[in-house]
């Protein structure tokens, strides 16, 4: 459903993403891994429209979305989470999610000022959606809680919920289990499986190898911006180029 062709991003003389070609299947869990600085987040930024590709195309359900504005890409059905999601610390969890569905509603300034039925319908739709996604990520019980009082793992779930509120066909998760302890990671893995079951394609960046190897259907390995391997976990595990890249990176850091 997402086909990427010769995707390249250069900053000045630096090539952050180098001629990457790959594709993500509908209903699969796709992972992108690679040593630090391999260009994973840049790759996400390109797909989500936060950065404009230097070259290449990104086909989403057949249409080239490369270079489109991030908000247009979100409306097309690609949602993303960030490594750290900024939220309104002092308002409730549920309140934070209401904005997530706005893109699927239409109400203008006059509707807001005059409180027209159209705006009321839009509000109601957003609230219903917020409650629905909160339930989906298993946080209905803390809908009233202030964001400031939530745990790291709960924040991750809230970030998922916010992305889901946009009714995406595919979600890009940037380190969904970053900063979360192993026990909680299992819960997040279950949640990711649940998304796939609900016909949402998942694409994620993660450093936790055990987690990746257990949940990903397919793994793309980037190193210095270029794709060095692409395949199911058991293939990737034994790929000499991948081992080389990771060992090389460790040697370099040591």
């Amino acid at each position: 459903m997402l086909e990427i062709n010769g995707l390249t991003k250069q900053y000045g003389g630096l090539t952050a993403v180098d001629n990457v070609t790959t594709s993500f299947e509908r209903g699969a869990i796709n992972a992108i891994i690679g040593p630090n600085g391999a260009g994973k987040t840049t790759f996400f930024n390109l797909v989500a429209g936060a950065a404009r590709p230097t070259a290449g195309e990104i086909r989403f359900e057949g249409n080239d979305i490369a270079g489109m504005a991030p908000d247009a890409i979100a409306r097309a059905g690609i949602a993303r989470t960030f490594q750290t999601t900024m939220l309104f610390e002092e308002s409730s969890v549920l309140d934070n999610l209401i904005i997530g569905h706005r893109l699927r509603t239409g109400s203008r300034l006059w509707d807001v000022l005059l409180h027209t039925p159209r705006h009321r319908r839009a509000e109601a739709a957003c609230r219903d959606k917020a409650a629905e996604v909160l339930d989906f990520v298993g946080l209905s019980a803390i809908g009233d809680r202030m964001i400031a009082d939530t745990s790291q793992e709960e924040r991750k779930r809230i970030a998922f919920a916010l992305a889901l509120a946009t009714e995406p066909k595919i979600v890009l998760l940037d380190e969904p289990a970053g900063g979360v302890n192993p026990g909680e990671t299992d819960g997040l893995v279950a949640l990711i499986h649940k998304m796939v079951k609900h016909d949402i394609t998942v694409c994620l960046i993660e450093h936790k190898m055990d987690m990746i190897m257990s949940i990903a259907d397919r793994i793309v390995v980037l190193d210095h911006g270029a794709k060095i391997a692409d395949g199911p976990p058991n293939e990737i595990r034994n790929d000499p180029a991948v081992i080389e890249a990771y060992l090389g990176a460790e040697h370099a850091e040591a």
Binding site: A48, G49, A50, A69, P70, D71, A74, R75, A79, R80, F82, T85, M86, L87, F88, I99, G100, R102, L103, L162, A163, A165, T166
Partner: peptide
């Protein structure tokens, strides 16, 4: 106000 990037990722035309 919170973040341009977050807002855009939610489909908001900045």
């Amino acid at each position: 106000r919170i973040s341009d990037d977050l807002a855009q990722s939610l489909g908001i035309n900045l």
